[in-house]
Design a protein around this nucleic acid. Structure first.
Lengths: 251, 251
DNA sequence: CGTTACGTTGAAAGGGTTCAATCCCTGTGG
DNA sequence: CCACAGGGATTGAACCCTTTCAACGTAACG
């Protein structure tokens, strides 16, 4: 396996993810000050929790390698997955309002993170407007993501949900400099199903059909996209929607 | 109709919503500085847009009276409602990351807002740590709300969605000092349906049944809760879930 | 008083769930 | 190295909730 991006204990200035992560928009001097408060943690093993529901809020975390699934347990005991965090993503901000984490983050692979103690971050941000802006911008992006998730859950068919999800993954991979058509993701089908508001059975059935139709395959945590164009159409992201609107042909 | 909370052009220090809104956590001196940058706008009429998708981001807004529905149009033309904003709520922060609004806010009643130009706010926040913290906290809360919304959409039955929604409304009303069992909300059933990921027909049917069962009624934009306890149970928020787990009786 | 948009009600159809059985992969111990 | 467990994935059949489509009521507004 190749890791084209980052060395283990690299500082922000040397990190391949700096264009995606906190340092975005900071000049070199500011980045060094940020570096000073960041702690690089020992890798987490698959299944380890970075934080759990109820735990007091101490820090936010940037993913360097690996990834997390973030979930909440509802009153009924079933848990809901609210998102997946991959290299360059920042997680933990949901705890900001209450002072306690309202979700649990589980490593889906061997994972390394940068820990940013929040008190330090807030203090530094008050001195560096661009960092503060970046922090706000980050949360705004998370909000936008969560809205897309809600939209996906609200009116999309199972097939649309799954294809849209794979499309998002593909684009995220590309933005990180990986291949957008062939990549690995340490998720169980059950996790995907929970995220998409479906059952594992439905996911399995649709996956089988899409593989047969040569759109993409997802076996053993390995995803391979054969027909990106078809994927886009199935996900309902093609320019001129054809599904239900007979008169939607140009302006 | 009674307006127990605010006079029209009251400053933050005199505003009945200060415990819910921006000023939360600010001392009097800081609140006065906040006051200085806040603009009170002329009331919007029902149906007016506060901002629309694509419009450049200038300010965030606090609702003083009335309310908004916030929606996005998906690629397929159908629009999805991501939330409702009532007095004390702050909206517009979703535009922060991109610099343009990614949603449209429509007044659901005659509505007054406080406009807070974002540049001024950011500048002031860099000088007042408590204001900056409040800003972050606010966005964190929005994120938490959006997650609850996603959870609602993902595995709840139509009845659970509707009862949960009414329960949330009731609690919000109470927190604002209104009656939690009898209140008005200028929403079409269609809006509610869109928010809940259902059709107007389904909403209508369930509303009819719940009214017959004396749980609550919702006619002509007037909501009246008869049996709060039943509502809590139906919404799946009772302590020990009974729905599907025969052995869920105590520790 | 007519128009229009929203709301209600009914019957039929469909997509996803549920439940259950079987398969497959991975890791473990003999 | 192989057998065996155990969790996850797959497949099938029946069911059920929600949608869809259509018709009818009803409230608001010019």
């Amino acid at each position: 396996m190749i890791t084209p991006i980052s060395l283990f204990n690299a500082s922000c200035t040397e990190c391949g993810l700096k264009k995606l992560c906190f340092p975005l928009g900071l000049d070199k001097a500011d980045m060094l000050r940020l570096d000073a408060i960041v702690k690089r943690k020992y890798p987490l093993q698959k299944g380890d929790a970075l934080f759990t529901t109820g735990q007091p809020f101490q820090a936010v975390y940037a993913v360097r390698a690996g990834g997390f699934k973030v979930s909440t347990v509802s009153a009924s005991g079933e848990d809901q997955i609210s998102g997946f965090y991959l290299p360059g993503d920042i997680l933990g901000t949901d705890a900001l309002a209450t002072g306690n984490h309202i979700s649990t983050a589980i490593a889906i692979d061997t994972t390394t993170v940068c820990e940013v103690p929040f008190q330090d971050l807030e203090r530094l941000a008050s001195q560096l407007p661009s960092l503060n802006h970046q922090l706000l911008s980050l949360m705004s992006k998370e909000l936008a993501d969560e809205r897309m998730h809600a939209e996906l859950l609200s009116r999309k068919s199972a097939e649309e949900r799954l294809t849209l999800f794979v499309l998002w993954l593909s684009r995220r991979q590309e933005r990180r400099g990986f291949s957008g058509t062939e990549f690995r993701l340490g998720l169980l089908h059950r996790d995907v199903a929970l995220y998409l508001g479906l059952t594992p059975e439905t996911v399995s059935r649709i996956l089988a059909r899409l593989a047969e139709e040569q759109v993409f395959s997802w076996r053993n945590k390995q995803i391979e996209i054969f027909d990106l164009q078809a994927l886009i159409v199935l996900a309902g992201e093609s320019q001129h929607e054809k599904t239900n609107s007979p008169r939607a042909q140009c302006g």
